[in-house]
């Protein structure tokens, strides 16, 4: 499926309680806990913030806006999670927004001092959407601990832009905004690294994928959904069906009607 078809309509955001003005881009901010994610959020949005709850959940949602190169961007702070396996309400909220909210781009904040743990989340986000920018934060702390992160290698391995930052000192934020805008507007094409699973998992996923494809809109990553079905995660399935059922999708369905009409 094509990544460029993924940007979403206003109605889908409203299902998440977001109000969008004309021509605004929506960017989600994901990341592990304790990676300085909120520092990045504050540094990008300044005091233009608004907090509330995710609809129907007692999980705090913060959103803020900023303007970069004359583009208005709505930044949605997702709960800090280690993964998107949806074991907790936080993970569910983060995953649902990435899948159903279809942001124009996703920033994943990663801690440069423990890259491996953070890449786990990066890889999971990249399975859902290709429009990812990795913000490799806490570069100063990594340097203090004699950890050298090779950004070029990392970008190449991941197939998405990686930007080194020290968010608390404001370092690297302009570059980050540039990269996010380029990915969101399609100027930068990404080719995210896909995890290869054991052959029996891949085969089973492919089989399921072909069965569900005719019934699903184009913006859901079919492979990703097939994998969730395989591991018996019914929560996302339920969320997608609810989302499709609440009528907010009609506009989009026309656009993807070729898929829907079979």
């Amino acid at each position: 499926m094509k990544a460029t078809d993924k940007s979403c309509c206003t109605e889908a955001y409203e299902a998440f309680g977001l109000k969008l003005s004309q021509n605004q881009l929506v960017v989600a901010l994901a990341g592990n806990p304790n990676t300085g994610k909120s520092t990045v959020f504050n540094a990008l949005t300044g005091l233009k913030q608004h907090t509330g709850n995710w609809p129907g959940k007692t999980v705090l949602r913060a959103e803020g806006t900023f303007v970069h190169r004359n583009k208005k961007i709505l930044l949605v702070d997702l709960p800090g999670t280690y993964s998107l396996l949806a074991t907790s309400a936080d993970e569910q909220v983060a995953r649902d927004f990435l899948v159903l909210g279809r942001p124009h781009a996703v920033i994943v904040v990663a801690d440069a001092t423990c890259l491996e743990r953070n890449l786990n989340l990066v890889l999971q986000v990249m399975e859902i959407t290709a429009k990812v920018v990795v913000c490799v934060n806490l570069m100063d702390e990594a340097a203090r601990r004699s950890i050298k992160v090779d950004i070029e290698v990392l970008s190449r391995e991941l197939g998405v832009p990686c930007i080194p930052t020290v968010a608390r000192d404001g370092k690297g934020l302009t570059e980050l905004k540039d990269a996010v805008l380029d990915v969101a507007t399609g100027v930068t094409a990404t080719s995210p690294r896909q995890v290869s699973y054991e052959p029996h998992v891949e085969q089973a996923a492919a089989r399921i994928e072909s069965r569900i494809r005719p019934y699903l809109p184009g913006w859901v990553n079919h492979r990703w959904l097939a994998l969730r079905l395989l591991e018996g995660d019914m929560s996302i399935i339920k969320a997608i069906i609810d989302h499709l059922g609440n009528g907010s999708e009609q506009l989009l369905l026309q656009e993807g009607s070729a898929v829907w009409a079979r």
Partner: peptide, 16 residues
């Protein structure tokens, strides 16, 4: 699989 992929990339990109 996801973790070993993450391990592999981290091994290449980060040097302690």
């Amino acid at each position: 699989s996801i973790y070993s992929c993450a391990e592999e990339i981290a091994r290449k990109a980060a040097h302690h």
